[in-house]
């Protein structure tokens, strides 16, 4: 089984209405239609999902781990960006 015939797909599952799709893992499949079936069979066996997205892994642009200091370090000192200075009413639910 070659990588060209069975490329990798990233799987995103939405568990409930109102939530966003979350990365669940990846599957090998020959095309998008089969990747959806493989994702269903691999990641929704215990009632985890209401909706599935699959994306070719090759289509994902990823940040370079070597850049982590320049990308992420500067936020460490900016505590005022965290929404911890006010109360969120329970009725708001997921934000």
């Amino acid at each position: 089984m070659t990588e060209a015939a069975m490329p990798l797909w990233e799987v995103f599952i939405r568990a409930r209405a109102g939530l966003s799709h979350r990365h669940a893992g990846s599957v090998h499949a020959p095309d998008a239609a089969m990747a959806l079936l493989a994702a269903r069979d691999t990641y929704t066996r215990r009632g985890e999902g209401l909706s599935i997205w699959v994306v070719p892994s090759a289509a994902i642009a990823a940040s370079d781990p070597a850049d982590k200091d320049s990308l992420f370090e500067p936020t460490a000192s900016k505590a005022y960006r965290h929404p911890t200075f006010y109360e969120v009413p329970d009725e708001v639910g997921h934000m």
């Binding site: 089984m1 069975m6 599957v27 090998h28 499949a29 079936l37 493989a38 069979d41 691999t42 066996r45």
Partner: peptide, 12 residues
Amino acid sequence: APMLEEELALAN
């Protein structure tokens, strides 16, 4: 099965 994904699919 020939691949993990189909192993699960056939078992399902």
